[in-house]
Design a protein around this nucleic acid. Sequence first.
DNA 1: GCGACAG
DNA 2: ATCTTGTCGC
Length: 285
Amino acid sequence: MKMSHLIHTSDVSTELWKIMNHVKEPSHSSSGCNFSTQFQSSQQMDWIRVQDSLKGRLITEDDFKWRLPTREKEGSCEILKYVGGVDLSFSKDDSSIACGTLVVLDLQTHKVVYEDSSIARLHIPYVPGFLAFREAPVLLELLDKMKNNAHPFYPQLLMVDGNGLLHPRGFGLACHIGVLADLPTVGVGKNLHHVDGLTQSRVRELLQSADSPENILPLIGDSGCTWGAAMRSSQGSLKPIFISVGHRISLATAIEIVRMVCRFRVPEPIRQADIRSRECLRNNR
DNA sequence: GCGACAG
DNA sequence: ATCTTGTCGC
């Protein structure tokens, strides 16, 4: 079918990409048409097509059956309890070796009630704007495994170490995982991905002069579009985190939930996934 | 044209 | 992402 064709093409592309990536490129390419460069851009055009296609399925409002524990009762509605977090760590020796980790926290106790890791060799390079093609497969596999086992702690919401809408095409890793796993997701970046005129320096200055409530600053670009929010998540961290909508959640709800799980600067589910993925890698060498 | 660019 | 020591503060 068409799908298998796409996968095949993608695999071949990836192999070629790796090969070409080791070829020394002329630094002064006056021709402007070397093969490697052309190939990269055609790979990226494929990726953009995939992102644009998946974006058609994106939902950017609250779309779930549970409610927050802080909200008033409305009948016998399910309450948000299981919040997941995902992250990857990389080997210092071999940067293609990665460990992806999924954790699930109980929102009440803040304790990890589920943990699973997977070590894999990644064949896709990191390219800004295309992080999902490198990191999503491992993470989706971890989610899939849990879902297939009908695990009782399967997350009702997932926090992702990477952006959602805060992305050049409005479809970052958190959106990518959210759509493919059909799960509410929130994107959390530790650094700002420059988009629509939003720069580190600009955000810093806005955050300082901010009359913004609760250390939160909406990230409004030159186009007037709101891409997410910068948040000083804990006392004593001048450096903000960057929250954006992933899938099936509004920015307001995303912010509310992130605030509930910020013991430190990085939200606890992501922080735990980060710690445990690093540890898993360490124990397996 | 050059620099910037989540992880 | 990763390399890398101490150090300042609650």
